[in-house]
Design a protein around this nucleic acid. Structure first.
Length: 312
RNA sequence: CCAGGGAUGGCGGAGUGGUCAAUCGCAACAGACUGUAAAUCUGUCGCCUUCGGGCUGCCAAGGUUCGAAUCCUUGUCCCUGGA
């Protein structure tokens, strides 16, 4: 039976280190599942673990530059697949990642999916729909001018059941309302997670069954989390995070580009362009990252398959 | 030492006699998550509670008033200008 290893969990828990150990013992290759490391030029801020910056492209005829880097004695896939200005989605991730998983399996190796973007992972492991209808930027743009009340009544008019199925939190979330409207208008109203937490990865790959080892790494408590993140942020600043963001600014990227909203990048942008002090930018970076780590665990702990481990 | 300004819940900051346990923002805590997810959104947020309500409360002490975070007196501390 083909083996697939998944290493997810909170940020700054040493996922890469663990994944590399797995790779060494299982003849594995790493597949990135980090929503920010998919962006080019965001290396230091997102903490890409690269020693050799030679990129080996592989054409899989999708509008992203898929390929791998060499890392220690293995390969790491799905770094640097999109421009910071490029729209990316969980759906695109699931397609790309399952393609790469198939490729690695075909080469007789063990795919090791690694990263803390649980929403992406959820789509890859449990998502069931590969609808060809993509997002509709024009529609989204039009809808984004509407108020919450207008969006709600519009959706109720289009499909009351769809609105009814939303919880209070989502009904106040204009992005979610817009996406529902978009789904209704494109006819993709089917539940992508209709099978709950039943793996759908096999089906996507056309494999019979996969032996999935699914690890989640988390911090023991808040203090440890905070300490680790402080060290990490200071380290990235030392490694040249500011200069990296400066280069992005010089390339012409602005806060309207998706990649620029990355934690750390955003704060350094404010420091470089909006007069925020470096100290304040640093503190906000740390804070946002800690908050993010907590959100990650809230989301992930619902997944019954994750085998949790406390990071050392 | 003189003149003026100010002290509000973990922080910032509204409120200038009743509808104030006190707008709002942040932080914190909990949660949501069907193509932006390191995103976006929701709930709680003085103490106690049988969730009806009860208690303490806006620097301190005293006073005015039916009633004070809000008015008066004194004290303490902070800020600005002048000696």
């Amino acid at each position: 039976m083909n083996k697939v290893i998944v290493v997810t969990g909170q940020t700054a828990t040493g996922k890469t280190r663990l994944a590399l150990t797995y790779a060494a013992h299982n003849n594995g290759e790493l597949i990135n599942c980090d929503a920010r490391q998919i962006y080019k030029y965001l290396d230091i801020v997102t903490g890409k673990d690269l020693t050799d910056h030679t990129f080996y492209p592989v054409d899989i005829s999708l509008p992203f530059s898929v390929g791998y880097y060499r890392l220690e004695d293995t390969n790491i896939w799905l770094y640097d697949i999109a421009e910071p200005s490029q729209y990316f989605s969980s759906h695109a991730y699931a397609r790309l990642a399952s393609n790469v998983v198939a490729r690695v399996l075909a080469a007789g190796k063990t795919p090791i999916i690694i990263g803390g973007s649980y929403f992406y992972l959820k789509h890859l492991l449990y998502g069931d729909s590969f609808s060809e209808k993509s997002h509709d930027p024009i529609l989204r743009n039009q809808l984004s001018a509407m108020t919450l009340e207008e969006l709600s009544s519009y959706l109720i008019k289009l499909n009351p059941a769809m609105y009814e199925s939303m919880n209070n939190s989502d009904r106040n979330n204009s992005r979610r309302l817009i996406r529902r409207i978009e789904r209704v208008m494109s006819g993709t109203t089917r539940d992508v997670f209709e099978n709950g937490y039943t793996y759908t990865l096999e089906k996507k790959l056309g494999h019979d069954a996969l032996d999935i080892e699914y690890i989640g790494l988390r911090h023991e408590h808040r203090e440890q989390l905070t300490d680790t993140i402080i060290k990490r942020v200071d380290n990235r600043l030392k490694e040249g995070a500011i200069e990296e963001v400066q280069r992005l600014i010089e390339k012409g990227y602005t806060l309207s580009d998706p990649g620029m909203k990355t934690i750390g990048c955003l704060q350094l942008y404010k420091h470089l362009r909006e007069g925020m002090s470096l100290e304040k930018a640093r503190n906000e970076w740390i804070l946002r990252e800690v908050q993010y780590a907590k959100r990650q665990y809230t989301f992930m702990k619902q997944d019954p398959h994750i085998e949790w481990r406390i990071t050392a």
